[in-house]
Design a protein around this nucleic acid. Structure first.
Lengths: 146, 146
DNA sequence: GTGTTTGCAAAGTGTTTGCAATTTA
DNA sequence: TAAATTGCAAACACTTTGCAAACAC
């Protein structure tokens, strides 16, 4: 009940719920991230997108924002490549395909894969998340089958 | 049949098999890695270890060596933390526990966990590896059970 | 001897930080 | 206005690179 058609409202509410002051930059970034169909973003990618959309925001602010969003539970950080962080707008449990050669990263729904026999965690710790990545490589033309 | 008791021989053979010229540094690093009980190493860790053992080797060479060993299949690179690479001397399939708070990384044998229902890989690709990491956090003193 | 490997230090990533200027409530 | 946020540029951590000297075969 209200202007549900305006994506802005959506982003605004996300920020409010997360107790993040809805500044111009945060709002704009939230809109790009949550309403532009993108799901896996690096800071640089998001920054570029912002630039393309004439959103004035510095890379440092993009980093800050990504971390604030992650801390607030709006994003999930994916560790898939040393030296580069991906942020996933899908915070529900799920898994990934990743092809290093071309940077392709795609989702696998949690219910598509069963993980059984999770060993008991070391004492003094508890399970925080289960990261499952199927790493791919592009087919070569043909390979000897030895 | 030969001096099997000398760890040196072991490392030497590994290098020879991998077609890597057994230089003083490579030999020494191989010995540290494969015969000192260590399994998960960062470049800096290995470099420190080398220093402690009075092995003169530069950090650049440690990096080069780790990559050469990885390319040769002697090591497996683990992506677990953006901005830091771990190298695993266990090249057989297996999984990991990881606790970011203290950097603890430990093995889970492949047969301890079953992964079922691996979705078919995107066309034009093939599965290279399955990375499964159980991320842990240290227990807090007590947590509300809501 | 010849080609490989090493070490250094410099350059390169991606990311974080300090602080003044700006913006929000 | 007071407190939070931003932008910039400098600082960072980790990794790679270029090239001359050292080494292995």
């Amino acid at each position: 009940m209200s202007t549900a058609a305006r994506p802005y409202t959506n982003a605004l509410n996300r920020l409010k719920d997360a107790n993040l002051r809805p500044t111009r930059q945060r709002l704009a970034l939230a809109r790009l991230m949550f309403e532009d169909g993108h799901r896996h973003l690096t800071a640089e990618q998001l920054h570029s997108e912002a630039m393309s959309n004439s959103i004035k925001v510095s890379l440092a602010t993009v980093y800050n924002t990504l971390h604030q969003f992650t801390d607030a539970g709006l994003l999930h950080e994916i560790v898939i490549d040393s030296g580069r962080s991906y942020f996933d707008t899908n915070t529900a449990p799920h898994y990934h395909f990743y092809c290093e050669e071309d940077g392709m990263l795609s989702d696998i729904p949690a219910d598509a894969v069963q993980i059984e026999g999770i060993p008991s965690v070391p004492s003094g710790t508890q399970l925080q998340s289960v990261d499952l990545v199927f790493r791919l490589k592009r087919d070569s033309v043909a390979r000897d089958a030895a």
